[in-house]
Amino acid sequence: MTENNNRLKGAVEINRERCKGCDLCVVACPCDVLKLQPKEVNNRGYHFAFADNASACIGCAACAAVCPDGCITVYRVRPKAVAR
């Protein structure tokens, strides 16, 4: 990875097959991390969400809170870990 890894604060994992591409997580994200796949679709034909700008994630879980399908798992670097 080329980015400054020490600035990474969080990460999201999206269950692409559960996702219905409703876009609500994209709207909820305060850091513009998420996007819907412009072309690719999942097995059910939905343009699923993905972390387009993954390194901007702060692990706030706003996306997961509004996700109607429970597709999103969120991680946040613990303060200690950041310090280290």
């Binding site: 990875m1 890894n5 020490n6 990474l8 969080g10 990460a11 994992e13 993954a54 390194s55 692990g59 879980a61 997961a64 809170a65 999103i72 798992t73 969120v74 991680y75 946040r76 670097v77 613990r78 870990a81």
Partner: peptide
């Protein structure tokens, strides 16, 4: 720390 390293159980905030 990489993004994949962040995705560890102790960092989990929502599932």
């Amino acid at each position: 720390m990489t993004i994949d390293e962040i995705k560890s159980p102790e960092n989990l905030v929502y599932a």
